[in-house]
Design a binder for these strands. Structure first.
Lengths: 217, 217
DNA sequence: ATGCCGAATGCTGTATACAGAACTCAGCAC
DNA sequence: GTGCTGAGTTCTGTATACAGCATTCGGCAT
């Protein structure tokens, strides 16, 4: 039955990410360890361990004597992160096993189309884009690269809140996904990579439009 | 006078990296927190914080109940890491400010040539390659990208020990650096990126030749 | 009213304490 | 001799304690 017994620090980390995704923390907000630990029902030790881990991921900042705070967001950082992720996902796709890609291409197409359909079941919506990309890169043998991409996506998620709930944007993404899948079906890697980059650029622009010009809250 | 008063956890982290670079730990080795903390003259708390930070960088692994150990190395992981770094440094170079590149190109050339010279002062040798690449990317405005590259290089350093002290290899690298600098002087970005990738590939091959086939110690 | 100073408070950074999991090894059955 | 078992030991994961820095706020001088 596999009783999952993970360290508290990891559970705390997940919980913090979850709350951040739901907007229960705001970027720049400073963290009171005692209060937060109490609220989470753990001691300061695993909380601090989780914070240090998140700090290395760039989601949290710390300053000697001042403690931790959620890293401020900014338009420039968003652009920077996006540029990195484009490069990494392109690499992952290019170096994926061709056979595996051919094998999953139909599924990639199907899932994109299923999502375009009027009412996708709720709950799957938020995760759709992530899930699709994860499937796309499931044939990437470079484990390190996959982990890195996942980690960076966590930091990008902080920006995606501005478009959460906007179905039109996700539909547009699904269309772009269809295009990528089609390229893979055709076995045209160059086009697939180009389409993937276009997908990223398009998503980036949608978010940029909605990010306040300065401060980015 | 700027008395540097950094948190112990960071000093510990640096010390561990230093020791790892000098081969005082071997990949796969497991860590006894009490002993190591004592040896470093700190308590377990900042040591564990340093270990958790290094874990996120991929230099250390942990398993619930078993504690921490230095992450095992492997030929495949080395290749994986190299592929990532090629992509990221290429990106960094391509997106660097052209004017800044023109400005530093002469220095890049000079440093590469100075190093090729018979006897470069000792101590500068080990850091030469890193320093040169850092200078090359000094015009990259993407701070996040620069941090990421630095972080990944730390993990690569674990593999470079096999060629440490081999001056021939560094001279070859210096020649490749000259080529890159020359491209930059000519303002030929495409060629510069290609030369940079060649530099990486070449270095990778030199190291691969010397990595034991299995286990990678 | 404004700005400086100092006590008081709160919070972080580090050390230590404690409970329970994992490992070790002697003893015993076979 | 080999394999199992269980007490003892070691170590980790988490909680708690403590010292010192940072911040706040009231009082005083200007």
């Amino acid at each position: 039955m596999a009783i999952e017994r993970r360290p508290l620090r990891e559970q705390v980390k997940d919980e913090l990410l979850e709350r951040l995704g739901h907007g229960r923390f705001t970027p720049g907000e400073s963290i009171n360890e005692v209060h937060l630990a109490e609220e989470l029902g753990v001691s300061r030790t695993p909380l601090r361990e989780a914070l240090i881990s998140l700090e290395r991921e760039g989601i949290i900042t710390s300053e000697r004597g001042k403690g931790f705070r959620f890293a401020p967001t900014g338009r420039q950082e968003f652009l920077d992160l996006t540029a990195i992720l484009i490069a990494l996902e392109s690499l992952a796709l290019r170096t994926s096993d061709r056979e595996h890609l051919s094998a999953i291409a139909p599924r990639l197409l199907a899932e994109a189309r299923a999502f375009s359909a009027p009412q996708a079941p709720h709950g799957t919506i938020e995760r759709y884009d992530d899930a699709w990309h994860a499937l796309l890169l499931s044939g990437c043998a470079n484990a390190r690269l996959r982990e890195l991409i996942d980690s960076l996506k966590l930091t990008l998620h902080r920006y995606e809140r501005v478009v959460v709930g906007d179905h039109a944007i996700l539909e547009r993404a699904a269309e772009e996904h269809e295009r990528i899948a089609q390229c893979l079906l055709d076995g045209d890697m160059e086009q697939a990579v180009a389409a993937l980059e276009a997908n990223w650029t398009s998503g980036m622009e949608r978010i940029m439009e909605r990010l306040p010009a300065v401060g980015t809250r």
